Amino acid sequence: MEQLQVGTLSITWLRGGVTHMDGGAMFGVVPKPLWSKKYPVNEKNQIELRTDPLLLQWQGKKILIESGIGKGKLTEKQRRNYGVEEESDIHASLEELSLSVEDIDIILMTHLHFDHASGLTEPDGNKHKSTFPNAVIYVSEVEWNEMREPNIRSKNTYWKENWEAIQHQVQTFKETYEVLPGLNLYHTGGHSDGHAIITLEEGDEYLIHMADLMPTHAHKNPLWVLAYDDYPMTSIYAKEKWITDAVSQDAWFIFYHDARYRALKWNDSFEITHEVKRNS
């Protein structure tokens, strides 16, 4: 498991599973000859997208960003359609760090699509139970409302199995919320109506998790948005604003989906100056 230490902040990427999604859908209207130079693609036109939660150990708290794809949650058809070759192994990942799911204090959810939220619950007989029973789960109010009452488009990704067992743990916010000093959630919309991003300030260092506004390093161009985005122009606006500001602050960009990089820094010319690569 890869780690990044920034001052007193420790980040560890847990094993949350992997999907392989259609490259064309992941890069929207961008022609394949362009995006395929930036990110590897297989013979099925699929790109690898990790679903690895970030464990933050900071300010005396154990915090997860996202929850993984879960284990035993998908049907064979879903595993095939989403190119799932590996499911979550969160329990074992935490055990390697001498931790357990009961030790998680806080979970930050940028949004609740199945590939981010399936790890919040796990099968328990013919029901589901909370995977992290002692955690407070933060998510935007707009996202939480749509999760429970999805529309004709979003019902394929918002599943009751992922929210019914954890609803008593959820705390919502509207536009911004400071979870801890220096740890903030910001509602952006774009990818979903309730999508949010996360920023962290540790000493002089600034870190940002753009979530599915920029799922991989290859999506840094503000115009390279997903066909899955519900509000692409909102995504473009948010990317322009947040990426430009973060680069100007020499920020660490931290990723959930990227199959190559866990974290990196860009200079003003978008050359990588620091990186944490994923071990193969």
Score class of each variant (00 low, 15 high):
residue 232 P to Q: 08
residue 50 R to F: 10
residue 158 Y to H: 10
residue 66 E to Y: 07
residue 243 I to Q: 01
residue 79 R to K: 15
residue 103 D to C: 06
residue 60 G to P: 09
residue 279 N to K: 15
residue 52 D to E: 09
residue 148 R to D: 01
residue 170 V to T: 03
residue 209 H to C: 03
residue 119 G to C: 02
residue 155 K to Q: 03
residue 231 Y to Q: 15
residue 132 F to N: 01
residue 81 N to R: 14
residue 232 P to F: 06
residue 77 K to A: 14
residue 237 Y to H: 10
residue 171 Q to Y: 01
residue 41 V to K: 01
residue 45 N to L: 12
residue 187 H to K: 12
residue 233 M to D: 15
residue 80 R to C: 04
residue 77 K to Y: 07
residue 74 L to K: 10
residue 257 H to S: 10
residue 163 W to D: 11
residue 176 T to K: 00
residue 249 Q to G: 02
residue 157 T to Y: 13
residue 233 M to E: 15
residue 194 G to L: 01
residue 145 N to V: 14
residue 35 W to G: 00
residue 39 Y to V: 14
residue 176 T to P: 03
residue 79 R to T: 06
residue 182 G to D: 07
residue 152 I to E: 14
residue 209 H to S: 02
residue 200 L to G: 01
residue 222 P to S: 03
residue 49 L to A: 08
residue 100 S to K: 07
residue 129 K to C: 14
residue 65 I to M: 05
residue 222 P to G: 07
residue 165 A to W: 06
residue 62 K to P: 13
residue 226 L to E: 06
residue 77 K to F: 09
residue 80 R to G: 05
residue 249 Q to L: 04
residue 122 E to Q: 13
residue 136 V to T: 15
residue 126 N to L: 14
residue 165 A to L: 08
residue 200 L to R: 03
residue 175 E to N: 11
residue 167 Q to K: 14
residue 133 P to S: 08
residue 104 I to F: 04
residue 258 D to W: 06
residue 106 I to M: 08
residue 29 V to P: 12
residue 73 K to G: 08
residue 20 H to V: 04
residue 220 K to A: 14
residue 15 R to W: 01
residue 151 N to A: 00
residue 91 H to L: 10
residue 126 N to D: 15
residue 200 L to A: 05
residue 211 A to L: 03
residue 182 G to R: 08
residue 184 N to C: 12
residue 41 V to M: 05
residue 120 L to K: 11
residue 197 I to Q: 03
residue 67 S to Q: 12
residue 40 P to A: 13
residue 261 Y to P: 12
residue 48 E to N: 11
residue 216 T to P: 03
residue 155 K to C: 02
residue 90 I to F: 05
residue 131 T to R: 03
residue 55 L to G: 00
residue 136 V to E: 13
residue 32 K to G: 13
residue 87 E to F: 09
residue 205 E to R: 05
residue 55 L to T: 02
residue 215 P to R: 08
residue 230 D to F: 13
residue 29 V to T: 15
residue 75 T to S: 09
residue 134 N to Y: 05
residue 128 H to V: 09
residue 73 K to L: 11
residue 193 D to N: 12
residue 144 W to Q: 04
residue 164 E to Q: 13
residue 262 R to Q: 15
residue 161 E to T: 15
residue 213 L to E: 04
residue 178 E to H: 04
residue 206 Y to M: 12
residue 15 R to H: 04
residue 131 T to P: 01
residue 63 I to Y: 01
residue 70 G to M: 00
residue 204 D to F: 12
residue 241 K to H: 13
residue 49 L to Q: 09
residue 143 E to D: 13
residue 182 G to F: 06
residue 218 A to I: 05
residue 62 K to V: 10
residue 90 I to L: 11
residue 279 N to R: 15
residue 17 G to I: 03
residue 81 N to A: 13
residue 171 Q to W: 02
residue 215 P to Y: 11
residue 201 E to F: 00
residue 70 G to Y: 00
residue 48 E to T: 15
residue 51 T to S: 14
residue 42 N to I: 01
residue 8 T to M: 02
residue 112 L to S: 07
residue 19 T to V: 09
residue 173 F to A: 00
residue 216 T to A: 12
residue 38 K to L: 14
residue 85 E to M: 11
residue 35 W to E: 00
residue 219 H to Y: 00
residue 242 W to S: 01
residue 16 G to M: 07
residue 197 I to C: 06
